[in-house]
Amino acid sequence: MGVESSRRARPPGPGARRTARARRGAARAVAVLVLAALPLSAGAAWATWSASQAVSTADVRSGTFGVETSWQSFPDLAGMMPGESRDGVASLTHTGDGTWRYRLSVAYDGPVQPTVTFYPRPTCTGTPLAAGALSPLTYARGATTQVCVRYTLPAGSPNAWQGQSAQVAVTATLESRPS
């Protein structure tokens, strides 16, 4: 019955065992290479799951920043003569958000141009604040500060200014600045 093998089973020798081990190692190496190459191959499907959810609905709104100016003490600049000075006190009130500092400037509309000196306080004393310079202090949100403004008709004013007039504007520029 059956076909007898003409070959008889024999226990493998040392050479045959080495060969088999080498083949298994090579096969494993090929398998690793194939698995490693799978993602790189053009046909491989590659997907990553992700999930997201809004943590909160934050309402971002910008602040406001403004200034209100008024005369606390109105300067009477009528009939000024050369060498004469008159003072006024301006009030600066911040509206809106943030801390702030200020700069002051002057502009003229007319032939008569008095010298204007600013003092960062309610009295025209102490160290003046140069036009365009940043105020020495930083102020809180909504704070009010006073600036003393001194108008001086220079001693060397031309004779032609007699009886002439002009509009003088003092402008306060508030800047939001960190405290």
Binding site: M80, G88, L92, G110, Q162, G163, S165, A166, A169, L174
Partner: peptide
């Protein structure tokens, strides 16, 4: 950068006469 706001106060100056 910071925000700015301007406010102006106008006055009339007149020179006297001799």
């Amino acid at each position: 950068a910071w925000w700015t706001a301007d406010g102006s106060l106008w006055t009339t100056v007149s020179a006297g006469t001799v």
